[in-house]
Nucleic acid binder design. Structure first.
Length: 355
DNA sequence: AACCGCAACAACCGCCACGCT
DNA sequence: CAGCGTGGCGGTTGTTGCGGT
């Protein structure tokens, strides 16, 4: 009401930014800030650009201390770990990598990291196929996935997963399903995106919340830490725990995971982070969140979701129990947080001039 | 040298949540 | 309180450059 429209699209320039435009935008923001209104900014400067475009240009390219390219192995690991943990929440992932933008990370993942992991998985599949006497002859994970889905009612299609002792190198706590306080804390901590989508999880865990306390509005009260983790994970739990696919909204990662691709990603990531303490701990916490501790041993991170898509011998009542130890996860998650380097602590990026 | 395919990156699009009027 | 504008985010598309044939 009474506000100017976003921009006059007819008079807005599109396409690559010229150095002159960059200079104008950068010098203005450095001197005056954004003024809290990106839409009005281009008019003030005399740029024929959409305000959104200016904002993106500033955030992704012009603001100080931005790094492009040259991702280190450490950064790869962190990205992969966080992707497994929270899915394609690029802005959150970017917040853990100083100097990196969500756009950069997103591109990097889509163009390199994903393929890197795919390559690893293909190699592993081939090796495994040889070991299995050629039972598995899929050329890629998607064909494997198809076979899994079509044959899931009939035959197990993944190697039997050894049942490993439920102990973790990162905690001495024993899992307890009765620790509803911890569960509640975790879910509340995840609260940023925690909504009714995940009500079935609460139902499945038999949680008793005070009236209305599991609603989005109440969880938002506890967002001072800005931890927006777990929508994907919760969605996956939702799917796994109920032995049926109930994808949460926009839960692409969960879809991937349950369909089987996620398992190869986590397998490969498991290898990637095996020599990296921070990533291993981070991944350990996050994957335990998915799979339970048995998934994080000697890099054998696989099986739960693969099994879920196979529907093989897994008893889902048992599996979901062994998969989810919320109290354990919560404590591990805290541990991971506390042990993170300061610059990696979960926090929102703040930009000069940003509101 | 020309063409083609692919990878990498920049930018746009559309949706959503939130706050303002 | 409804409607609208804005900021923010993730997905997708467009462009460019490079390597191979």
């Amino acid at each position: 009401m009474g506000r100017a429209p976003c921009c006059d699209k007819a008079n807005v320039k599109k396409g690559p930014w010229s150095p002159e435009e960059d200079t104008k935008l950068k010098s203005y923001i450095e001197q005056h800030g954004t003024g809290g209104n990106w839409i009005a900014l281009p008019q003030k400067i005399g740029l024929k650009r959409c305000g959104k475009s200016c904002r993106l240009r500033w955030l992704n390219y012009l603001r100080p201390n931005i790094r492009h390219g040259g991702f280190s192995e450490e950064e790869d690991n962190i990205i992969c770990s966080l992707y497994v943990s929270i899915g394609s929440r690029w802005s959150v992932i970017a917040a853990q990598l100083p100097g990196r933008t969500d756009n950069d990370i997103k591109n990097y993942w889509n163009t390199r990291l994903k393929k890197k992991l795919l390559g690893k998985h293909r190699k592993e599949l081939q090796a495994r196929n040889k070991g299995n006497g050629g039972i598995l002859k899929q050329e890629n994970s998607s064909s494997l996935l198809l076979q899994q889905n079509s044959a899931q009612q009939l035959h197990p299609c993944w190697p039997q997963i050894p049942v490993l002792p439920l102990s973790s190198p990162y905690t001495n706590q024993s899992p307890s399903f009765n620790d509803q306080d911890s569960i509640r804390k975790l879910l509340i901590k995840l609260g940023g995106r925690f909504s009714d989508d995940y009500q079935p999880i609460l139902d499945g865990l038999n949680l008793q919340f005070p009236h209305g306390s599991n609603s989005l509005s109440s969880t938002q009260q506890i967002q001072e830490e800005q931890v927006h983790v777990g929508s994907s994970a919760l969605g996956c739990m939702n799917s796994i725990g109920h032995n049926q696919v109930q994808f949460g909204q926009s839960n692409e990662y969960c879809a991937e995971l349950v369909q089987g691709q996620g398992s190869f990603i986590t397998t490969a990531i498991g290898e990637m982070v095996s020599s990296n303490d921070y990533s291993r701990r981070l991944l350990g916490g996050s994957l335990e969140f998915f799979y339970g501790e048995e998934m994080i041993t000697d890099n054998k991170i696989m099986g739960a979701c693969a099994s879920s898509s196979c529907g093989q011998s897994t008893n889902w009542g048992e599996t979901s129990s062994s998969l989810m130890y919320p109290s354990l996860v919560a404590s591990n998650y805290e541990g991971v947080r506390q042990e993170m380097p300061r610059e990696c602590a979960f926090q929102e990026l703040s930009y000069p001039g940003a509101q």
